[in-house]
Design a binder for these strands. Structure first.
Lengths: 314, 314
DNA sequence: CAAGCCCACAGGAGGAGCTTGTGGGTGGCT
DNA sequence: AGCCACCCACAAGCTCCTCCTGTGGGCTTG
């Protein structure tokens, strides 16, 4: 996740998302015409689009017959991949809806970068689905994504109804509830000498190294600092400070220095071998992700309650 | 992943993938013009496209200045989401390349559905990346996705150079190497009575239930049957037999009957609450994913070796 | 102060995708 | 048997989108 290499656009063989949706719906319904109706286009247009997809892919995907269409073997695999892609696209879609600023009645959420990037879109999809199955109309949500400090401020000042933060302590003046756990990992470029270590890193070594770090006020940075402080250590002045985990990842991949990142943010790059994780011996880098709200001691009602419930169950 | 609900096309607010790529590259380079050059379009076209994205999202994403463009807060979040989407798209893209049938020299891979759907695209991306960093030109790979039995046949007959199968035993006449572990889970619709059970399911109960199942010859089916056989049990005749895990998932969601699925295939739906997992008490449903090849006892050379190495390290 | 980068606006050409109209084929119902 | 409903594909025309080129304004650098 989030490891887009940049500079290498996707090949022109990748069909458009809408065309893939059409294919998936054709597979589901067993009929091109039915899928066309779902998408609000004519059967002919759908047929042409799907032929276009087949031409792009370079393999037959559908077995057309006078009483419907079935998938070929290649089609089956492609539909499976496409469904996954569309799921992620739906998350982004949901996320985009939260960025739109033109609503009046809405749930205003402020979240730390880590939560906003990696968890919220999925939560929102689930909340929406649950509200719809419960027969309620889905709530409009607006999202502000900053660092944990500013999330706390936004909630305190009433700019946001609900916040999500990381960090070892509950922000002053707010009520909180744990919703998930996360863990920080030390990551380096695959070419970095630390990847060839036998023994795990010690807290002392880590503290003595100039890292690529997030700015002060970020939950990631604070957790690291407090974990080191618990060992009587202080963080060396960072080599670079950046405000996004993308920036941090890119700097690490460029080989400059190690970094400490949320596992959520690093996962994709670790899996793909673009980054390597370095175990740390004597440091507790797990952290809680908390929902926070102002005012009463009980969790908020309405849509905020729904979101909180979904977040806790994931 | 792979839980596409169907019937609800993505909102028209979602920008096209190419437009999102453009945004990501603009963020990376700090300049609209530079991103335009990467994508081989004029600066004006890129500028217009990005304005289109902003209109679609309904929020400013870029802070344009006479010496470049930076992201707004909303832009930062969107870029992060978009990068993830593009990563998945790149996997699909890579997968599509393997479906194209027009190459002559290539590595021919046959894989079980589970592996083809959930693991191979990522492996292929990594192989490609490693080959490129090693200065070699990337290998063309063609993929056939069927059930484990037919994968074994394809490898035996020389139709495929390398195969990936599930199942408790190594197919006769082939050499094998473990590459990963997987686990089967019992899944039901969220409304199914089993979700309200206190005690875990017993193997006996499971065996006595008519399930939604994969066809005979599939690795998923075989693992289940053998796990039951180890307890002296036999599977009841399935309620339905389907050849894809999508089909199985949909049937389960429709509420008809429980199913046994790879955790890989069920993950997305479990996370989103579209399916529920039911613990099973006394049944070992873990399974190995194996690479198989014909002939010599040593693993194959060349590109097959690269793929094998990547698969094992993930 | 000119050159080089950044950006945006305007007009025109091309093409991709849609719709409507049409026809061939199969299965079920009366 | 015959009609109807559904499946699919081909063809012609239109529309709108997106790209191109040409142009101009603003800021920084040598």
């Amino acid at each position: 996740m989030g490891g887009y290499r940049g500079g290498v656009p996707l090949s022109p063989h990748l069909p458009e998302l809408s065309a893939l949706e059409l294919l998936v719906d054709t597979a589901r319904t067993g009929s091109i015409g039915a899928a066309a109706r779902i998408h609000g286009i004519s059967q002919q247009a759908a047929s042409a689009r799907l032929r276009g997809v087949e031409a792009l892919v370079g393999a037959p995907l559908l077995l057309r017959s006078p009483r419907g269409s079935r998938l070929t073997e290649s089609g089956t695999v492609l539909v499976e991949w496409a469904a996954r892609l569309i799921d992620v696209a739906a998350e982004v879609d949901q996320g985009i809806a939260t960025l739109r600023a033109d609503r009046s009645e809405r749930l205003r959420v402020a979240a730390s970068m880590t939560v906003a990037e990696h968890l919220l879109p999925r939560w929102l999809i689930t909340v929406r689905a649950r509200q719809q199955t419960a027969g309620r109309s889905p709530t409009a949500v607006t999202l502000t994504a900053t660092n944990s400090d500013r999330v706390a401020e936004a909630v305190r000042s009433g700019e946001a109804d609900l916040g999500f933060v990381e960090g070892p302590t509950v922000p002053a003046g707010l009520r909180a509830q744990d919703v998930a756990r996360d863990e920080l990992v030390v990551v380096v470029a695959p070419s970095h000498p630390w990847t060839r270590r036998r023994a795990p890193l010690t807290a002392q070594e880590l503290a003595a190294t100039a890292l690529v770090a997030r700015e002060e006020g970020s939950g990631t940075r604070r957790v690291l600092e407090e974990a080191l402080a618990a060992k009587g250590l202080r963080l060396t002045v960072p080599a670079v400070e950046l405000t996004t985990s993308t920036g941090v990842r890119e700097a690490v991949r460029a080989g400059s220095a190690p970094a400490v990142l949320s596992r959520l943010a690093a996962e994709g790059d670790l899996g793909a071998g673009r980054l390597a994780a370095v175990p740390v011996a004597d440091l507790d880098l797990s952290r809680r992700l908390r929902a926070v709200w102002a005012g009463s001691s009980t969790p908020p009602a309405g849509a905020a309650r729904d979101l909180l419930a979904v977040a806790r169950s994931c």
